[in-house]
Amino acid sequence: MQKLNFPTYTFRFKNSENKVSIFDEIRKKFVILTPEEWVRQNVVRFLLKEKKYPKSYINVEKVIKINSLTKRYDIVVFQPNGKLFLLVECKAPEIPISQNTFDQIARYNMVLESEYLMVTNGQNHYFCQMDFENEKYQFQNDLPNFKSKL
Rank of each mutant, 00 (worst) to 15 (best):
M1Y: 05
K3C: 00
N5K: 03
T8M: 04
T8E: 15
R12H: 12
R12E: 14
N15H: 07
S16W: 01
V20N: 01
I22S: 06
I22A: 04
I26Y: 05
K28N: 15
I32F: 06
L33P: 07
L33K: 11
P35Y: 08
E36P: 06
E37I: 10
W38P: 01
V39A: 14
V39Q: 14
R40T: 09
V43G: 13
R45Q: 15
F46R: 08
F46Q: 10
K49W: 00
K55V: 01
S56E: 14
S56H: 09
S56F: 07
Y57T: 13
V63D: 11
V63F: 04
K65I: 13
K65W: 05
K65C: 08
I66V: 15
N67T: 01
N67K: 13
L69Y: 07
L69F: 10
L69E: 14
T70Y: 06
Y73P: 01
Y73W: 08
I75W: 06
V76Q: 12
V76G: 05
V76A: 11
Q79N: 14
Q79Y: 02
P80L: 11
N81C: 07
G82F: 03
L84V: 07
V88A: 12
E89D: 11
C90T: 09
K91P: 00
A92K: 15
E94W: 02
I95A: 12
Q104D: 11
I105H: 05
A106R: 09
R107E: 11
N109G: 03
E113N: 15
T120C: 03
T120W: 01
N121A: 10
F127N: 11
C128F: 15
N134L: 13
E135N: 09
E135L: 04
K136F: 06
D142P: 02
D142C: 02
P144K: 10
P144N: 04
F146C: 12
K149S: 11
